[in-house]
């Protein structure tokens, strides 16, 4: 780091010889950069920031496509209604249950598989390809496949297994609790390979010498896992948790295809409620308020997660 001479930094810039060419070229670079950035940023503003502002405005309106004659300014009425809406609170709880359970399952199963497969010398490429399959598929298709060929009573494979195991045929998507479990399992099925791939890559990046040193220091396998692997993997795990949480909070396609939020509202997480309110029940004003609520929940949760990450990093 160069140190400013005592007589330089304080020197007035009006001295003879001042050219300021560096500032001119910096300005030129700024203009070039702006020209490159502007189209993308205009597009981003138009497709994200503008909708956000518009959304907030809509949420202060009574806007009902089924009853357009009632439309008008509503102020905070939608939000007041929301706070008193048991269906909202229920959807919020479902969102949290869905998010926490899917994220925990993904991380635990993904980590366990990564640790197991680390030891495998051959066939890792095969696993990577298998793991990629669910991840690249459309959640809508995944939902359709599970709903039709896995969970349909009688000829769905899962139902067949349940019958064979003596549990009898279950109404997997018709029973409220079973439906929730089903959508959680489907989400976990699709996204665990993602956690697995990220954690496997992070595990592979840990240097062997650390483990050799730990063995020389007489650490057992369990101690090596708790004292070395987990702490070193923590950034990757936290990253996976953050990413998966954001996705789970706004999960839509698979649930929509499998249960559409039903039976009744048994699998109606907040995201689905906002959609149904807006596009099935056509109350765009109240639907917007629900979307804003989802945004606030997302922001709160991500703030907590990012704080967690920073604290651990420090």
């Amino acid at each position: 780091m160069p140190v400013a001479g005592p007589n330089i930094a304080g020197e007035p810039d009006a001295l003879p010889g001042l050219t300021g060419h560096d500032r001119i070229s910096a300005r030129r670079e700024k203009r070039f950069a702006t020209a490159l950035l502007a189209p993308a940023f205009l597009a981003l503003i138009a497709t994200t920031t503008f909708p956000l502002l518009f959304l907030i405005w809509i949420s202060t309106q009574r806007m009902d496509l089924a009853m357009p004659f009632m439309d008008g300014f509503a102020g905070v009425d939608n939000y007041r209604q929301l706070l008193a809406d048991p269906r909202f609170w229920r959807s919020l709880v479902l969102s949290l249950v869905y998010t926490v359970s899917t994220v925990v399952l993904q991380v635990v199963i993904g980590l366990a598989l990564a640790l197991l497969l680390m030891k495998m010398k051959r066939g890792q490429t095969l696993f990577r390809i298998i793991a990629i399959l669910p991840v690249v598929l459309s959640p809508a298709i995944v939902g359709m496949v599970w709903r039709s060929f896995m969970l349909t009573p009688e000829f769905g494979v899962i139902d067949y297994l349940a019958i064979s195991a003596g549990l009898g045929s279950q109404n997997w998507l018709g029973d409220p609790t079973m439906a929730m479990i089903s959508v959680i399992v489907i989400h976990t099925w699709q996204w665990t390979p993602f956690a697995f791939m990220v954690l496997l890559a992070s595990l592979a990046a840990l240097p062997d010498e650390i483990y050799e040193a730990a063995r020389i220091d007489r650490a057992g396998a369990w101690q090596r896992f708790i004292r070395i692997t987990l702490p070193l993997l923590r950034p990757a795990i936290v990253m996976v948790i953050i990413m998966r949480t954001m996705v789970a909070l706004t999960a839509f396609a698979a649930i929509y295809v499998v249960t559409a939020g039903g039976p009744g509202t048994a699998t109606e997480i907040l995201n689905l409620y906002a959609y149904r309110k807006s596009f099935t029940e056509l109350s765009l004003g109240y639907g917007s308020a629900l979307a804003v609520a989802l945004l606030i929940v997302t922001l709160l949760i991500s703030a907590v997660l990012f704080l967690m990450r920073r604290e651990r990093a420090a």
């Binding site: 001295l15 050219t19 070229s25």
Partner: peptide
């Protein structure tokens, strides 16, 4: 590649600072 804050640079008597 960078420009000076002050001063001049001349190549063969020609000011190239800018």
């Amino acid at each position: 590649l960078d420009k000076p804050t002050r001063g001049r640079i001349l190549f063969d008597g020609k000011d190239v600072t800018a």
